[in-house]
């Protein structure tokens, strides 16, 4: 059973990751923290894009909604960080479903353009401080530290463990998705929507659900992102971020858990490490996207058809 071998390797790697703070420096811990958060967002993008096959190029919106919900609730209303997470998840999921509801009937490319539109409108709402709660172009500062059973988690190590736990939960959920009717229905819709509906699949329901789940998970990552940086600003949730998430899924491998994780490393972590390249960074980045696609059109680590 290949599946369980992969899963066991995954579990070992995850536990090994949990021990990294014992040996690594603070800067590495914070890079791994950021990796964990973006990996969750990338996995959540994959739910919509790679698994349900809907061209979502505005996923940073839901990540941003989660982050801003936490920032606003914590800074303005003093709600403890971890209490904001379920609210962030629910609000992001609702935003995702409401935006998706009129759009899911659209053919791929139209949906793609509509989601770009959502992302731009979201950015403008943040920058123009609609409702006076987003803090405008500067965003919101001074987000507190989470506490668990009365213990404040203020160290890099503590935050890392929190982020790593969410990644673990996301990985378990994705793994379960692969073995459930829900995961199969997403694939049926992706491969042939008409055939799926003639077998009784309510396409609209499941597509909106895919957006809700993907957005909700991104919202949870948003909470931890706001906590990790102690600040949120519009620039972290712009169209370019959505493009990067989109590219992670396609470059890594659609519906492939190791592929998406590897994609996250390449698209988010490597640029962090190679800051020395400075202004050449994005030139190389763009070139790399072309080269990877030409050499591996299915992605670096495509999903394999595993015999059951």
């Amino acid at each position: 059973m290949k599946l369980s071998v992969n899963r066991n390797i995954g579990a070992v790697v995850w536990i090994a990751g949990l021990l990294v703070p014992l040996v690594a420096s603070n800067s590495w811990i914070s890079i791994l923290s950021i990796f964990a958060i973006y990996a969750v967002v990338a996995l959540s993008t994959d739910v919509v894009l790679g698994r349900a096959g809907m061209y979502d190029m505005g996923h940073a919106v839901y990540f941003g909604v989660g982050a801003y919900v936490t920032a606003i609730l914590n800074v303005q209303y003093g709600v403890p960080i971890l209490w904001t997470m379920p609210i962030a998840v629910v609000v992001a999921a609702i935003v995702g479903m409401v935006l998706a509801a009129p759009m899911v009937k659209l053919r791929g490319d139209y949906l793609l353009v509509a989601t770009i539109g959502f992302n731009e409108i979201f950015r403008m709402i943040l920058i123009n401080d609609v409702g006076g709660v987003t803090g405008g172009p500067d965003g919101i500062f001074g987000i507190g530290v989470p506490s668990v059973f009365g213990y404040s988690i203020s160290s890099q190590e503590g935050l890392f463990v929190l982020n790593w736990l969410l990644l673990g939960i996301a990985l378990v959920l994705m793994n379960n998705l692969d073995k459930s009717r829900l995961g199969r229905v997403f694939r049926y819709l992706k491969e042939d929507e008409l055939a799926a509906t003639t077998l009784g699949v309510n396409a609209r329901y499941y597509k909106i659900l895919a957006f809700g789940l993907g957005a909700g998970l991104a919202g949870a990552a948003g909470t931890l992102f706001a906590t990790q940086l102690a600040t949120v600003s519009p620039s972290a949730f712009v169209f370019m971020e959505s493009v990067t998430l989109f590219a992670i899924v396609i470059v890594g491998g659609q519906a492939s858990i190791p592929g998406v994780l590897l994609g996250t490393v390449l698209m988010f972590v490597v640029p962090q490490v190679f800051r020395d390249l400075a202004e050449y960074r994005y030139l190389v980045f763009g070139l790399a996207m072309i080269v990877v696609m030409v050499l591996r059109p299915q992605g670096i680590w495509p999903r394999r058809n595993r015999p059951e």
Partner: peptide
């Protein structure tokens, strides 16, 4: 190839 591979290639070209 899959349509989205070309889309990502186009995004890379735009960045480049």
């Amino acid at each position: 190839a899959h349509r989205l591979s070309a889309v990502v290639s186009a995004l890379g070209a735009s960045m480049f």
